[in-house]
Design a protein around this nucleic acid. Structure first.
Lengths: 230, 230
DNA sequence: ATAATATGAATGAAAG
DNA sequence: CTTTCATTCATATTAT
């Protein structure tokens, strides 16, 4: 809803601007927009191009896989007449271990095997399959998550005090205490990204040449983007 | 939400700026475009806007999947769309390929060159740098992961075991119990690990609805980026 | 309903 | 190259 609205707003204002400029100016090519505005316009076109591209591809993906969607949502039911509110219908259900499976998984986990090898996963999967649907991937993910989350629980007591008095409800997971060697800021390596060099300043439309995420953020920033690249 | 507000403000200010520049006409900006070019630009934006709307609508029809009737390309009647609860958007600390980059990477990967040499990685990095920030390390890691994970998907799907389990999910037939705790959808683990190797043609989004939702939510909440970029 | 939490899954990056 | 870790996302469940 908003999305469309916003785009239309953008479009409208641009149209008005352009019309005004054209109507108000003489016939000679006097200035219509500043270079920055020009560039901005170009960027917006890029944005739209990219969005359209993404949407088209998503649409293709959807239509090509549509027959696979079982869409048996059980308790979830959307009134067809009230399609406005029922925006999100997801066909994907995620695996949930049965209590028995969970019990067994926990037991195996507690046995100390920090490394569930591939073969082990196979066995476990086969074993747990007796109690409900499960796949090796499920088992793999479960152990992976179990390990990771049991480890993070040991980070909770920020103070030297133990967990008994936890008076820090607002503490996010951001507190970066000098842990073991593991947690390092994980610097993402970005390269300068020479924007000027990669996009010819032409008046004509080019295929989108900026990152999608950046484009998305630029929809409303629309012109303030340059700071990102500095 | 205030996202829309911000965007509208943005629009307003842009309009003002432009109007000033044009209306004042004292600012002697030079040249830039002819009226025809201007008009052409405006029309293209219009076209993109329209197409985006239509695609969004198509997507809604398809995913909601309950009413394929109203699918008319000519009628722009989009009002549904999500009021999706805005997720928090935080600065990414690890590289994430833009959809375009992903697409290109997948294509390169499918071309068979299993071992991208150093030079090849350089080239690819350079190429993809046109679409967003990226580094050689990113490319290297991506190929490594892609290779490794595409290899581990050959043994999951048919690991379905006894039928005793497969019959289980249907045991409970959506009884009338809104508050029942027993609710264990259990369901099916449809896609164990198949997402890696999608169809060769739609080498793009593994899970269409997810991609779309992410996109949409980004558009919606994109206003939150502002402070980050400024 | 809405917010908060728990957890299955996806994935970039690093270790082995 | 293979396995593991860490982080993030999406959904399911629970609490307010």
């Amino acid at each position: 809803m908003e999305t469309k609205q916003e785009i239309e707003n953008k479009n409208t204002s641009n149209s008005n601007i352009n019309s005004n400029g054209i109507g108000g100016s003489k016939n000679l090519y006097m200035k219509v927009m500043s270079d920055e505005q020009m560039e901005q316009l170009r960027q917006q076109i890029s944005v739209y191009t990219t969005i359209c591209d993404q949407l088209v591809q998503m649409h293709n993906s959807i239509t090509s896989q549509q027959d696979l969607v079982g869409l048996r949502l059980g308790s979830l039911y959307c009134d067809p007449m009230m399609a406005c509110s029922g925006h999100k219908i997801s066909a994907r259900q995620r695996w949930t271990p049965t209590p028995l499976q969970l019990q067994l998984l926990e037991r195996i986990f507690d046995e100390g095997n920090g490394t569930p090898t591939k073969q082990k996963i196979k066995d476990i999967t086969n074993e747990l399959g007796q109690h409900g649907p499960i796949s090796e991937t499920n088992v793999y993910n479960w152990f992976q998550n179990r390990r990771a989350r049991s480890k993070r629980k040991q980070l909770a007591p920020t103070s030297n005090n133990n967990n008994t008095s936890s008076a820090e409800p607002e503490a996010e997971t951001e507190v970066e205490s000098p842990k073991e060697k593991k947690t390092r800021p994980e610097s993402f390596q970005l390269q300068p990204y020479d924007y000027e060099n990669s996009s010819p300043h032409s008046l004509y439309i080019h295929s989108p040449d900026i990152g999608f995420d950046q484009l998305m953020s630029k929809i409303e920033v629309s012109g303030c983007y340059s700071s990102y690249f500095l």
